[in-house]
Design a protein around this nucleic acid. Structure first.
Lengths: 347, 347
DNA sequence: CGCTAGCACTCAAGGGAAATGAGTGCTGAT
DNA sequence: ATCAGCACTCATTTCCCTTGAGTGCTAGCG
């Protein structure tokens, strides 16, 4: 698709005005407000062309134009240029993180809070993919007969736990031995490799004939099979969606919030973005499979530790949101979070 | 306030119809539908009386009557009789809990899910007051230099953790000693008494001169001071509020959801109910201090283990909700949760 | 040939008058 | 005491008209 400079300017103007006002924008406004020195009639011709290309759309004959999803996409991909976040804003966000503890969960929660506050939209933060974090510590606690609480801690301080039912009752003393054995065995390996390591170990001779070892391994196997899969997500600031006039219609709002309720979908959505790119991504509603979310957009970015992409964070808002503000915020926040997760060099 | 039998019947009819339809109810409907064999004119007279007493209210001259908060209160306290939940429903709720693990958090989350699903309103479940649960295990993990992850497990399997910054760096070996010492010291005492016990211990001679002990105690002191206070709450099904026509007005809805956003208020609210009574309580919006919540009602009940009231759960909905359904559900769910929390006798 | 001024046309949105109907209060009869 | 009947009130709905923003088209201009 080729657009002349002027065509692009007109499209840009339409998108910008539409994002600002939410109303269809007419030719007159554009010819007046924006620097193109042509009459409204000319703009109309251009707009008619853009409409033919499927970039604009007219709600009804006597209304102005609204960008289509295709138009928005084209604008975002080929026309708009997004700056880095201003240093003033950067400082503000940094400050918001200042007081927060270094507790992992707390940090993620804080992140979602900050994002939703600064972008005035709903924010999502995906938990790190467990498989990528490294083993630090495991502990088995006997809660009651045949019921064992398994606690897993990753090197970065992420705590996971899972309640396990076991066929026979095991004393706390023995469980302590399990812990000691496993803590040594699994030291510092990525959680994603635990299963493999355990399987390997199970076939070693010294283990095959040692009841304690093999039970410990069997238990670990089961726990990692069932227990620690759950990736989770923090969603915050859904109320902000109420700010947008497009969601004053309760039915629409309902559909969308319902989609949020089922977190697994959002998780999958964010998870997908992890495989695609390293930087900020924009996914427009109509590009998602979920038709409940057709009317919203997602701006997301992965966060990392070192070179591994751990998880993702993002902002969810109406298609008509302030990309020029939100994109830099998302970008910076992701960087900041990555920075905070960076392991300091041991002194 | 004294009401004749007939007056009560009329009030009841108004409340019931209003709850069902959400519209002001007129005299004609009442004289027809409900078993009182009097004409609408007579009903009108009765209604006029009830209005004078402040139990009913007329939005405008030619509209029917709506119960006032006072009227609703009177109805709930003195007129309505709530049955136990039907056994069919009971079985359904039991079933919903069937598959769930015995993991504490999972259980609470499940509870909020079940409540919101069965009552078709928003549900809240307050975490147990930590102070009332008993000590099971504490563990200190060195995450990085001068940063220690403290994990606390209560006897019922509730896991809490907190990231602690400590002035000097302590090796994992030493931390393990801390754990062993404290696990013995604090065995099985209620968490609310930990601080006292620690303080006591600090003054004992054998501790005063032992560096390890006193450091461990100091650390515990600090953790329990700052870390484990946070009571939390699960809120689920807020979307259900959108079902009620009274909240299709976005502004109202906004106010209410905003109040939800700040969980601490809701926590305080539920926490208060814990001190009042043992059974189901109904708090009507106007009775709360928070004027944001004037338009909603809360039906809550404590849950317990044995004889101690641990926490509370409840349903939040419009003032006009189906009390006759929800009250029994809340009551039963609280009982069921208490039952599930019951510690089985050790075999 | 590209641009523009001008004009007729379209259509959503706003506003006001009239119709509708649910519900009341009061009165006089039973 | 209770009720039938009637006049009255007032929110809600419906309809129609006006308004104004915006378009497409065409003829004329540089």
């Amino acid at each position: 698709m080729e657009l002349s400079e002027r065509d692009q300017k007109v499209l840009e103007a339409v998108v910008n005005d539409y994002i600002k006002t939410g109303e269809p924008v007419g030719s007159r406004v554009i010819s007046k407000r924006h620097g193109l020195n042509v009459s409204s009639a000319t703009i109309r011709n251009v707009m008619a062309d853009l409409e033919e290309m499927g970039l604009l759309y007219q709600p009804h004959t006597s209304a102005g134009r609204v960008p289509t999803e295709k138009g928005l996409r084209f604008y975002l991909d080929s026309i708009a240029e997004f700056k880095k976040l201003e240093s003033k804003e950067r400082a503000l966000i940094r400050r918001a993180f200042q007081e927060s503890t270094r507790d992992f969960k707390e940090l993620l929660r804080k992140t979602s809070h900050v994002l939703s506050k600064f972008c005035k939209q709903a924010a999502v933060v995906l938990w790190p993919r467990l498989a990528l974090t490294r083993f630090k510590h495991i502990e088995f606690i006997r809660i009651r007969v045949r019921q064992i609480l398994v606690i897993l801690i990753s090197r970065s301080g992420l705590v996971q736990h899972y309640t396990l039912h076991w066929d026979e009752d095991i004393s706390q003393d023995e469980l302590d031995k399990f812990s000691r054995y496993l803590n040594e065995l699994l030291e510092d390996i990525p959680l994603g490799e635990v299963k493999k390591r355990v399987l390997n170990e199970m076939h070693k001779e010294k283990v095959l004939f040692d009841e304690l070892y093999s039970r410990a391994l069997a238990m670990t196997q089961q726990v990692f099979q069932a227990g620690f899969e759950n990736s989770d997500i923090y969603i915050e600031g859904q109320i902000n969606l109420l700010n947008s006039p497009e969601f004053t219609d309760v039915q629409r709002l309902r559909r969308i919030l319902e989609a949020f309720e089922d977190k697994s979908r959002i998780i999958r959505l964010l998870d997908m973005t992890l495989n695609v790119s390293e930087g900020v991504q924009i996914i427009l509603g109509p590009e998602m499979e979920l038709k409940e979310l057709h009317e919203i957009g997602l701006i997301s970015s992965p966060y990392r530790r070192g070179d591994t992409l751990l998880g993702a964070l993002g902002v969810i808002g109406p298609l008509r949101m302030d990309y020029s503000k939100i994109i830099p915020v998302v970008e910076f926040t992701a960087d900041l979070l990555s920075e905070l997760l960076e392991e300091p060099v041991e002194e």
